[in-house]
């Protein structure tokens, strides 16, 4: 294993954003392939962070700073990854459904997906079903994430899924839902593809599904 990989790994695990950025730049200058830096440095580091989180050795705030470092490194790598023809990890559209202003959970999932290397387009809060559908048409994501905190607004998840169904390309996108009142049963009932009880489970779910329409970085 190259020293560079180890140093990037360490910077990301420690949540050293500037360090990760600089190390990635320097390594590229030194002629190391972007795809290798991604897999051996950044992604391996975030896997380690995930393991430590599961073990209870790391907590959300530390994980998010590691995700920031990962994201910073990745943004420098992205043009080089395109050149090397490395397939993207995946594109996600995310938002809190109509009538619901709560965004902490949605933001957490966003940051952790970015930390796992996903490109995330965040539509914000109080997002109407037609706005979700429009974004799906425009960005062709692999995954759509719907968030709701309230039992009253979670009904909008069903409406949003129906709006996406109406596009006629439902088989090209996976829909995951989450939020305090949401359950696995509810996700099945409204025709979602998945449910996650917390942000780290959402990331695991996203990593596990095949990305049929993955684009190049």
């Amino acid at each position: 294993m190259k020293d560079e990989y180890e140093m990037i790994f360490k910077a990301v695990v420690e949540g050293n954003v500037e360090g990760a950025e600089k190390l990635v730049s320097d390594s590229l200058m030194g002629g190391i392939m972007a795809g290798e830096l991604l897999n051996q440095g950044l992604i391996r580091a975030m896997d380690e962070v995930g393991t430590r989180f599961e073990r209870g050795d790391m907590y959300i705030p530390e994980m998010l700073v590691s995700a920031k470092a990962m994201k910073a490194g990745l943004s420098i790598l992205r043009p080089y990854l395109v050149k090397e023809g490395i397939p993207a990890i995946g594109r996600v559209i995310i938002g809190t459904v109509k009538g619901d202003m709560h965004d902490i959970g949605k933001n957490l999932v966003t940051m952790m997906l970015e930390g796992a290397g996903f490109e995330v387009i965040d539509l914000g809060t109080d997002v109407a079903p037609e706005k979700f559908a429009e974004a799906v048409r425009k960005y062709s994501p692999d995954i759509v994430g719907l968030s709701a905190l309230l039992t009253t607004t979670m009904q909008q998840m069903k409406n949003t899924i129906e709006a996406i169904d109406d596009l006629g390309t439902r088989d090209q996108v996976k829909i995951i839902i989450g939020g305090a009142p949401v359950t696995q049963e509810y996700s099945e009932k409204i025709g979602a593809d998945g449910y996650a009880a917390d942000a780290s489970k959402a990331v695991n779910w996203a990593k596990a599904i095949p990305h049929s329409n993955s684009k190049v970085f």
Partner: peptide, 26 residues
């Protein structure tokens, strides 16, 4: 969630060992 102040202080919070702070699926 990820501001330095939180990183500096969140570990001062008590963590349970056998009391349940889990979500239901976990």
């Amino acid at each position: 969630l990820d501001v330095p102040h939180t990183l500096d202080h969140f570990r001062e919070n008590w963590r349970p060992d056998i009391f349940c702070h889990s979500n239901r699926p976990d």
